[in-house]
C-alpha cells in the first residue's frame, strides 16, 4: 500500500532522513519508533508532501507522491493526525470532525464517517459544542485522530498519539487505536515510547539519526538486545 524507498530528506543542509525504506501493507498496523529527533515526524511529513525528498521514492497504491501537493495526497486516501493535534480553536469539536466530510465529500456518506469517528472516541460526543481551545491535551488528540478518520482514509498516519498526555488519558487513546485496528484500517504510527506500541503491531521499524536500524516484528525486536537498548531509552 505505502512504499518508501531509500528516502532522503535534507532540512537546511542537515541530513534528516538517510535512505529510509519502509512498507505498510493493506490492513497492517506498522510502528515507527525512535528517540525524539530521530526523523519520525519528518518521515510522516514527507509522506504528506510537506517536505520534498532529495532522493528516494514515496509510493501509495502504486502512485508516486513525491510531486503531489498535500491536498492531492489526502484525496488519494491518506489521513494524518499530527503530533501537535492541530485542532481548530475557532471551530467546535463537531465542526472539526465534520470538516473532512465537506472538504473530501467522495467515498462513504458523511453521516457514516462522522458516526464512526464518534464510535472510536464516544467521549467526544459530550464535547461536541465545545470550542477547540477549550479542550485538554488528551481531548485534542482524540479530536485530531477522529478528524483524520472522518476523511475515510485508506491509510492513517498517527504522529506520536500519546505524546505529552497524562497517564489517565492514555488508555482511552490506546483503546481508540485498538478500535481503529479492528476496523481493518491500515495505520502507520510514529512513537517514541516503546511501551505505547500496540502488542498486535504487524511490524516495527526502529529509527536512529534518520536511518532505519531495525525492521521486524515486535517479538523479533524484543529478542534483539541492541534494538531494545535504543527503543527502551527512546522516550
Amino acid at each position: 500500500m505505502l512504499d518508501l524507498g531509500a528516502l532522503s530528506v535534507d532540512i537546511q543542509n542537515s541530513h534528516i532522513l538517510r535512505g529510509v525504506t519502509l512498507k505498510v501493507g493493506q490492513g497492517e498496523l506498522v510502528c515507527l519508533i525512535g528517540r525524539n529527533g530521530a526523523g519520525k515526524t519528518t518521515t510522516l511529513r514527507s509522506i504528506m508532501g510537506y517536505r520534498r525528498p532529495n532522493a528516494g521514492t514515496i509510493a501509495f497504491l502504486g502512485r508516486s507522491l513525491t510531486d503531489l501537493p498535500t491536498h492531492a495526497i489526502v484525496r488519494l486516501g491518506i489521513g494524518y493526525a499530527p503530533e501537535e493535534s492541530e485542532v481548530y480553536g475557532d471551530l467546535t469539536v463537531a465542526e472539526n470532525i465534520e470538516l473532512p466530510t465537506w472538504t473530501c465529500p467522495e467515498g462513504r456518506p458523511a453521516a457514516e464517517r462522522i458516526a464512526l469517528a464518534y464510535q472510536i472516541f464516544p467521549k467526544l460526543r459530550q464535547y461536541m459544542k465545545r470550542g477547540g481551545t477549550q479542550l485538554s491535551g488528551g481531548e485534542r488528540k482524540m479530536v485530531s485522530i477522529a478528524r483524520a478518520l472522518a476523511l475515510d482514509p485508506k491509510l492513517l498516519l498517527l504522529d506520536e498519539p500519546f505524546e505529552g498526555l497524562s497517564p489517565a488519558i492514555i488508555p482511552t487513546i490506546s483503546d481508540g487505536i485498538a478500535s481503529i485496528r479492528k476496523l481493518g484500517q491500515s495505520v502507520l504510527m510514529a512513537e517514541s515510547n516503546v511501551h505505547h506500541i500496540p502488542d498486535d503491531a504487524d511490524r516495527l521499524y526502529v529509527m536512529e539519526r534518520g536511518e532505519i536500524i531495525f525492521a521486524g516484528t515486535p517479538g523479533e525486536a524484543k529478542r534483539d538486545p541492541a534494538v531494545m537498548r535504543v527503543i527502551s531509552g527512546a522516550a
Binding site: M48, Y50, P69, T70, H71, V74, R75, Y80, P82, E86, Y88, G89, D90, L91, E95, L99, P100, W102, T103, C104, R147, L151
Partner: peptide, 19 residues
C-alpha cells in the same frame, strides 16, 4: 468554516484535502 480553518492553520487544512 473552511475559510476560518484555513485562516487558523493553513497546513492542517491542506491535510484535510483543501486546495
Amino acid at each position: 468554516r473552511i475559510l476560518r480553518a484555513t485562516a487558523e492553520n493553513r497546513a492542517m487544512t491542506e491535510a484535510l484535502g483543501v486546495d
